[in-house]
Amino acid sequence: MKSKIDIKNLNLFIGKQQILKNVNVQIPENKITIILGPSGCGKTTLLKSLNRLTDLYEDVKVSGEIIIDNEDILHSNQDVTAIRKKMGLLAQRPYPLPMSIFKNVAYGIRISDSENKKTIPQRVEYHLKQVNLWDEVKDRLHSPASRLSIGQQQRLCLARGLAVDPEIILADEPTSALDPISSQAIEQKFIELKEQYTVVMVTHILRQARRIADYVIFMYLGEVVECGTAEEFFSNPKEERTKAYLKGAFN
């Protein structure tokens, strides 16, 4: 198992409150890694520290290392936009940018790669096809993205993230606002995408984790309680808290 992201001794404080407590995990390449745990346990914060969106919070202190491709992104002198571009982000609800469907997907390309203007339409088409949205929107590419259904919007947001050629996909409970059919479409997509991408997904839905996880990180109150392959984690949990959680003792 080749690891893509290596998190070492990660501690994160917001003000005086410690959100992440000495997190040490490795996230394998080309697998779906699920960060599992009850709400408020730091799952989302861990996810957002991977692409340094935690920089946006006031009074954040981070220590430790997050190594991606041999580079510690927390202490890198590389441009933070380049680090973020490596990772596509999918949020809890779809947040399409206030522009047309086409421009939503083209947005990242236009910003980061101003040389290849001519290929933008092809790339937009490619990524919309990649998320199975092309056939539904090809006749109205220039209408506002907000007019799409919420399930379509979430797939559009995925296409927007994929358009800047990331290596990693970060997803924060990406199906929580979606209907069952749209949720299934996203899950299915993730299973296909792991061939080319490393997928990290936060969820508190145990059944979703069972369906798609290759690797599980179980968090509780800011700590990583247990992590391992999905098979091992679900059939043979080692920690008491994991066993209790898997039995449904708490959510």
Binding site: L53, L56, A82, A91, Q92, Y95, P98, Y107
Partner: peptide, 27 residues
């Protein structure tokens, strides 16, 4: 304006100013 919109723009590699200019002002 939801913070997630800013995050969405930043996460595809936009700078803060680009996010303000192309996304927030438009919204």
């Amino acid at each position: 304006i939801p913070e997630e919109l800013t995050e969405a723009s930043l996460s595809v590699g936009a700078t803060k100013w680009e996010t303000i200019k192309y996304v927030l002002l438009k919204k």
